[in-house]
Simulated assay, not measured.
Amino acid sequence: MGTSIGAVEVLAEREWRARARRHEERVDALTADHLRRRREGVRHPVEDFLFTYYNFKPARLRRWHPGAGTVLTGEGARELLSERFTVETPEGVGLDVEAFLAARPVVDFVERLLSAVADRPAHLGCFGLHEWAMVYRAGEVRHGQVPLRLGHEGTDRVVESHRIRCSHFDAFRFFTEDARPLNTLRPTREAQVDLDQPGCLHAGMDLYKWAYKLSPAVPSELVVDCFELAREIRELDMRASPYDLRAWGYEPVRIETADGKAAYMSAQEGFAGRGAVLRERLLGVCRLLRENATSGR
């Protein structure tokens, strides 16, 4: 492990190069199938989501950064000085916190949002009905290459027979016009801090978004931890959706049945617990940035 000077962890070149190599190998394994499909021009309705909806390309995910509070030593570290937000300090090469905070005012919003969500209990039992509301009484579906499992009429009946309580604006904004009045909440971007809650699948996936938006202040290992959680959540999100994904190897979570609802809530609770750990780690980065800015590091 690296030595520590005050609040700064110092990594020798051998140590940080080994970390970087492990990170690259991990990302290569996670993105290999996506990159192969991209070369072949083949789309995937589940796994492509993290590279199309979220604006962080595989090459950027692969690039390793130690994160705030860590400096790198050795000749190789000086080669990194050409990268944005990198500065040489008496201890080694690390993050220019002042420049990063000046360029990324989103840090304050992310800290407020994550703190608010962390303080709320998880609301379970939404059963992924946001995906159903996105095709309610629609003449066409968002994923045109994937059939509806229950057809249009069956899908509409599921929506009409459930109470919809979607709190996440980036899900609600895709509801059809007929579905919007059925939602018991009215999420807006301005109300996101007040409405997001830890049981929401989209709030869990968004931990990945906040992690990469705070890169390179967030250690790259944490960004990938959030990516892996988001990918697993996306799978549940689509398995519980109205789409029939069995041709891609995904058995449906039939949320229109009691067994399906129980399975969904169990998985949702597990994701909420894992998300809570990652959320606290991201909040730790936000706090460290503020502390280092105050100390002038």
Score class of each variant (00 low, 15 high):
Met1Val: 12
Thr3Asn: 09
Ile5Cys: 12
Glu9Thr: 15
Glu13Gly: 00
Arg14Glu: 15
Glu15Ile: 04
Trp16Pro: 03
Trp16Val: 08
Ala18Tyr: 04
Ala20Gln: 15
Arg21Thr: 15
His23Tyr: 01
His23Phe: 01
Glu25Leu: 11
Glu25Tyr: 02
Glu25Pro: 12
Ala29His: 06
Ala29Arg: 11
Leu30Arg: 12
Ala32Ile: 12
Asp33Tyr: 06
His34Asn: 11
His34Lys: 04
Arg38His: 10
Arg39Asp: 13
Arg39Ile: 13
Gly41Ile: 09
Arg43Thr: 12
Asp48Phe: 08
Phe49Thr: 15
Leu50Ile: 14
Phe51Ser: 09
Thr52Asp: 14
Thr52Asn: 12
Phe56Tyr: 15
Lys57Phe: 15
Pro58Ser: 07
Leu61Trp: 10
Arg62Thr: 11
Pro66Gln: 12
Thr70Arg: 09
Gly76Ile: 00
Arg78Tyr: 13
Leu80His: 03
Ser82His: 13
Ser82Leu: 14
Glu83Tyr: 10
Arg84Lys: 14
Phe85Met: 02
Thr86Leu: 11
Glu91Ser: 12
Ala102Gly: 09
Ala103Trp: 01
Val107Trp: 05
Phe109Lys: 01
Glu111Arg: 13
Asp119Tyr: 04
Pro121Arg: 08
Pro121Gln: 07
Cys126Gly: 10
Leu129Ala: 03
Leu129His: 03
Ala133Ser: 13
Ala138Trp: 00
Val141Met: 05
Arg142Trp: 15
Arg142Pro: 11
Gln145Ser: 15
Pro147Glu: 06
Leu150Asp: 00
Glu153Gln: 10
Glu153Gly: 02
Glu153Pro: 03
Arg157His: 05
Glu160Phe: 05
Glu160Pro: 00
Arg163Asp: 14
Ile164Cys: 02
Arg173Ile: 14
Arg173Tyr: 10
Leu182Ser: 02
Thr184Trp: 10
Arg189Thr: 09
Val193Glu: 09
Val193Ile: 15
Asp194Phe: 08
Gln197Ile: 06
Leu201Glu: 13
His202Cys: 01
Gly204Pro: 01
Met205Gly: 08
Asp206Trp: 02
Asp206Val: 03
Leu207Pro: 00
Trp210Ile: 14
Trp210Glu: 04
Tyr212Cys: 05
Tyr212Met: 05
Tyr212Asp: 09
Lys213Cys: 04
Leu214Ala: 01
Ser215Lys: 01
Ser215His: 06
Val218Met: 01
Val218Asp: 00
Leu222Gly: 03
Val224Ala: 02
Cys226Ser: 05
Leu229Asp: 06
Ile233Lys: 01
Glu235Leu: 11
Glu235Trp: 07
Asp237Trp: 11
Arg239Tyr: 13
Arg239Val: 12
Ser241Ile: 06
Ser241Trp: 00
Pro242Asp: 07
Ala247Asn: 03
Ala247Arg: 05
Glu251Cys: 10
Thr257Gln: 07
Tyr264Cys: 03
Ser266Tyr: 07
Ser266Ile: 12
Gln268Tyr: 04
Glu269Gly: 07
Val277Ser: 02
Arg279Gln: 12
Leu282Cys: 03
Gly284Met: 00
Val285Pro: 00
Leu288Arg: 07
Ser295Lys: 08
Ser295Arg: 12
Gly296Val: 01
